[in-house]
Nucleic acid binder design. Structure first.
Length: 555
RNA sequence: GCGCCCGUAGCUCAGCGGAUAGAGCAAUUGACUACGGAUCAAUAGGUCGGGGGUUCAAAUCCCUCCGGGCGCACCA
């Protein structure tokens, strides 16, 4: 019978409640989070530790060690607990017996891909918008980061029961697109690129494709019609390219939402009307404004400009309402640090619609990606030809290495990408360390089969080696890591966990053999270890899966 | 000036208010006639940017100062 940290926590909660009851304490409530056990860094402190006695000592007006002793007494009677010690200022250290801890290996193998999944967002409809790069050029390094992180986050939400929609906001309305069209046209007419336009090789390539695809004679058309052709065809081509490169990167969106729809469907007017009805709209300087300062924004925002055109925020208003009407209770948008100024106005909008900011709408701000060469940050410049786009990155290091490098750091941290480093010194990217560990589990399993070791027996009490109990402890943490990554919106936790697991596996491999040496007989210890080996492979595969990184069986 | 993020080992970065702050790379030294050496073991390397505060306990929370990045339009 398996003893998981979750079960242990639940039982500890009962014990704590009992202690509170004996004291006649009714005002103090203790939740499951308060008693969640942590894995001590130091092995001498047992398999699991709780600080609950220290937390409760003060409100109860008691001595933490005394309380800990009392709780420890109860914990000793839990099935599978080998020993309980009270240490330091009042830590309760729990050591499991080998059989109870080791049973997990079998559980994991039997659960397979389901191990690690949770229920945090069961049935919750989540809309996760990310990348959303303008279709005016290929996806740059920054956008690639959001692609990797966003997709991984979506996988994690899915793993904890969320009904996730990956959404790409396709900005096909407004000035940027005009500039793009004018740039294509200029290229076609062999004129210099517009001052505010786009340059680069891809412009001329797209131009050629438009010319090839357009059925009629472009040359005889008036200039404004030519530009319209380049706009319509060019955007489609660019967009198809973006879709394809994202797909090749392992990122597929469920919804590509066209901003134009919001303007054409009347959603924008409806959104403004709704705000007006709620009294949040005013007229000034012949423009129409949203009084966002009523909701904490630092200035009011123009929704209809004095020239009658919709202000930028109008699209956001309509888009948010549209998402809400499509039934998403949680809407997340990932943006780069250069957009962090939007957060306040978008939260003001959320409040103005009567929703709860930071709950119904959440903006995840990720810091910028720098291209580094020989330790020196490179200014990414189109003219200097130092722009790195999605395809460049994948071509240089491959999808797995690229995704892993982008997802293993906190998004709060600026990220340096050194292509030479990632390419030449592959050890600098721990993805290979993790993948190798996974490949090794399969290699071991193949050898085991060849030596006649199978999973016909399982005796967890045999898993007594130090590296085995450590490995089991790490395996047991996986579900919590996934849940925490979902709660905090931090996929990098899964990557770091995978590295830790891989390290513990390698160490175990080094000291515990699954296949017998020479003519030694096959024993139940070998068979049981095969379960542990396979369990580790399963968890490594599950973890890499959450990152969108492959788990090769051979390397 | 205001706002957001960052400052942890030589470098790149983890670190959920807890026990002796960790990993990879780089450095030094070991381990293959043992399931793959893309591995493992060991050594060295830290005023957790500075200063206050809260707490039984602070890298973690609060205040402040100093550095670095980014942003503050009737542009999108």
């Amino acid at each position: 019978m398996t003893v998981t940290p979750a079960e242990l926590s639940a039982q500890l909660l009962t014990i704590v409640d009992g202690a509170l009851e004996r004291r006649g304490e009714s005002t103090l409530t203790v939740g499951i989070d308060d008693v969640s056990l942590e894995r001590p860094k130091n092995r001498d402190h047992g398999d699991w530790a709780s600080n609950i006695a220290m937390k409760l000592a003060k409100p109860l007006g008691t001595n933490p060690r005394q309380l800990a002793d009392e709780l420890a007494e109860g914990i000793r009677s839990i099935h599978g607990v080998a020993s309980v010690d009270v240490a330091g200022p009042g830590f309760i250290n729990v050591t499991l017996d080998a059989a109870a801890a080791g049973a997990l290996a079998k559980t994991i193998v039997e659960e397979g891909a389901a191990f690690g999944r949770g229920t945090l967002y069961s049935g919750v409809r989540i809309n996760l918008e990310f990348v959303s790069a303008n279709p005016t050029g290929p996806i740059h390094l920054g956008g690639v980061r959001w692609a990797a992180v966003g997709d991984s986050l979506a996988r994690i939400f899915d793993a904890v029961g969320g009904e996730v929609t990956r959404e790409y906001y396709f900005n096909d309305h407004g000035l940027q697109i005009d500039r793009f069209a004018r740039s294509l046209l200029a290229s076609y007419l062999v004129e210099p690129a517009p001052e505010d336009g786009y340059g680069g090789q891809y412009i001329s390539e797209i131009k050629d494709r438009v010319v090839a695809a357009f059925p009629d004679d472009l040359a005889v058309m008036p200039r404004d019609q030519q530009q319209e052709v380049f706009r319509a065809y060019g955007v489609d081509f660019m967009f198809a390219d973006i879709k394809k490169s994202l797909h090749d990167f392992g990122v597929d969106f469920d919804v590509y939402f066209h901003e134009n729809n919001l303007h054409e469907s009347g959603d924008v007017e409806r959104a403004i009307t709704r705000l007006r009805d709620n009294g949040h709209i005013f007229e000034a300087d012949s423009a129409t404004w949203f009084r966002s300062t009523d909701f904490g924004d630092d200035k009011d925002r123009v929704v209809i400009k004095s020239d009658g055109e919709a202000g930028y925020i109008s699209g956001d208003l309509a888009y948010y309402l549209n998402k809400r009407e499509r039934g998403y209770e949680r809407n997340l948008i990932m943006l780069g640090a250069d957009h962090h100024g939007y957060v306040r106005r978008l939260m003001a909008m959320t409040s103005a619609f009567g929703d709860e900011p930071y709950v119904n709408l959440e903006i995840l701000i990720g810091q910028m990606v720098n291209l580094v060469k020989d330790g020196v940050p490179q200014r990414m410049s189109k003219r200097a030809g130092t722009v790195v786009v999605l395809e460049d990155l994948v071509e240089a290091v491959g999808v797995d290495a690229a995704r892993y490098a982008l997802v293993r750091s906190s998004i709060d941290q600026q990220l340096d990408i050194d292509l030479d480093l990632l390419t030449k010194r592959t050890n600098d990217n721990p993805v290979f360390y993790v993948q190798y560990a996974h490949a090794r589990t399969h290699s071991v399993a193949r050898n085991a089969a060849a030596s006649g070791v199978d999973r016909s027996a399982f005796d967890a009490s045999l898993l007594t080696h130090e590296t085995e109990s450590t490995l089991l402890g790490v395996l047991a943490e996986f579900p919590r890591v996934v849940t925490q990554a979902a709660e905090l919106r931090e996929p990098h936790r899964v990557a770091r966990y995978a590295e830790e697991l891989a390290g513990n596996y390698h160490r175990w491999y080094d000291s515990c053999r699954v296949t017998p040496l020479g003519d030694e007989p096959v024993t139940d210890l070998h068979r049981t270890r095969l379960w542990l080996n396979d369990a580790t492979g399963t968890v490594l595969r599950n973890a890499l899966g959450l990152l969108g990184v492959s788990a090769p069986e051979r390397m």
